[in-house]
């Protein structure tokens, strides 16, 4: 493993485990630092903390927040909560898929520019349907509007 990566991991260790934080917090920090959770970092932490790697893997695959593969530069999260659903979230998703040329089981574009995800309610239902790009919330969306909005991230 590169020493640079090890330094980052040691930093995370000092910030979390050393203060009694649990492995969910550790994994959140790893993902903040690298964008996803790599196997090497789990093995490093498992060795550093004597917590079996199976516990890390169990947690990573349980919580939908964690990702085992790299994600795109921009994360488009379409809300599929109840309200957004009845207000047409599925049409927004199909429009984005079409515009980004994403196949049925693909979430990330080939150029690694976008990852499309869905979430069950971001708690902004009164401006449904809602799309979140990176951390910015876009309300009252429709297929046309979202297509235009996504375009602005292409530059």
């Amino acid at each position: 493993m590169e020493t640079q990566m090890e330094e980052v991991l040691e930093g995370i260790y000092q910030k979390t485990v050393a203060h009694g934080d649990n492995i969910i917090t550790v994994l959140q920090e790893i993902q903040n630092a690298f964008g996803y959770v790599q196997e090497e970092s789990v093995n490093w932490f498992s060795a550093r903390t004597s917590i079996p790697a199976s516990k890390f893997y169990g947690v990573i695959t349980f919580y939908s927040q964690f990702h085992l593969t790299p994600r795109g530069k921009n994360i488009i999260t379409v809300c599929s909560g109840t309200v957004c659903h009845v207000k047409g979230a599925s049409r927004i998703i199909s429009r984005i898929r079409e515009d980004l040329k994403l196949g049925e089981d693909k979430a990330t574009t080939k150029d690694m520019l976008f990852t499309l995800e869905s979430v069950n309610c971001v708690g902004a239902c009164s401006i449904a349907p809602v799309v979140v790009i990176n951390e910015k919330v876009y309300g009252k969306m429709n297929p046309e509007k979202i297509a235009k909005t996504v375009k602005t991230y292409k530059e």
């Binding site: 909560g81 109840t82 659903h85 069950n120 708690g123 239902c125």
Partner: peptide
């Protein structure tokens, strides 16, 4: 945790 998809009382 407010996970109910269609609720935002606690968030607000």
């Amino acid at each position: 945790d407010e996970g109910d998809p269609g609720a935002f009382m606690d968030r607000s």
